[in-house]
Write a protein that binds this DNA or RNA. Structure first.
Lengths: 158, 158
DNA sequence: CTAACCTTGGTGACGTGTCAACTATTCCGG
DNA sequence: CCGGAATAGTTGACACGTCACCAAGGTTAG
């Protein structure tokens, strides 16, 4: 690794601002969701994907695939959500190894109650603070960075 | 909460891209740091701030303040780092409650070894993927979002 | 001086995330 | 049909973060 190219002042400042935005924005959204709906952000994501599924039921592996979560992480998280009554597990008739995750009535109620105020918070904290050109820029930046990371990093197919 | 203003397609796409960039970029940088230096990102942050401090020693509360970490989080993390020999704890003569955190030789060696390749990874994964205008845009976006969140959210002084 | 209060820092419990190892089932070549 | 490989999903150990609480030392009003 010859001659590290350190970050210049502009880069340093941008990088720190980006990291800090992640921190404070994530924390603010998590707090809002938690306090109004008793859901964490991961809970919310799982419920969203479950709502999207036909008949509000989905195989664990399929859920892991669309969420891009490790199966282990998903399994742990589903266990916790099941304990709280947000989702249920059902056996799969056609594959003895498989399991379906189903949205319970409580889970449905939770996501219905949480979604509007969560979107509102995203708008208040993020979209209301930036211009529509900013939104375009950010999408472009994110797309390029994602492509770069996924091209360079291992596991290109996940 | 009257009439939720849902995200339109552009916003939806930008928001998802932003979230995904956070995920993959954070994961890639964490993996790189871990595999080359046996340090986590939080480890790295702590060591950076410790290196910045006069005499590589700093009071716990001061460290928490500059890092904007909860004292509890910092205390837990320092315990783990101390167990690995990266930092040490010393009593404070002038305040019986206080404690100094000191950078050990191992800690110094770890950060010295980690920093160049970490910066390199930030460059490869992020700065090489975007233009210098993008960097300006992102800094501006982040500054505005941070200001917005901190103005709206509780705990303005943290 | 001393009682109320504040500050410093740590602890335990619990939710979350990753890794490696495991069980049970299905698939597939012979 | 059988035995090994692949797949589905779970589990346990451990790192990380937050919350609520606590212990011990300082600070200050009376």
């Amino acid at each position: 690794m010859a001659e590290t190219r350190w970050l210049d002042d502009h880069e340093q400042r941008a990088w720190r601002a980006y990291l800090r935005m992640n921190t404070v924005l994530g924390a603010a959204l998590a707090r809002q969701l938690q306090s109004e709906s008793m859901l964490s952000m991961p809970d919310f994501e799982v419920l969203v994907h479950l709502t999207d599924a036909d008949d509000a039921r989905i195989r664990v592996s399929e859920l892991a695939r669309v969420m891009r979560w490790e199966k282990s992480r998903l399994s742990h998280h589903l266990s916790r959500m099941e304990k709280r009554g947000l989702v249920g597990r059902e056996e799969c008739a056609s594959d003895g190894r498989g399991a379906f995750i189903v949205l319970t009535d409580d889970g449905r109620a939770a996501i219905d109650a949480a979604a509007p105020s969560h979107v509102d918070a995203v708008r208040r904290y993020f979209f209301d603070a930036v211009t529509s050109d900013d939104v375009k820029s950010l999408a472009a930046i994110a797309d390029r960075v994602i492509a770069r990371v996924e091209a360079t990093d291992t596991c290109p197919s996940v």
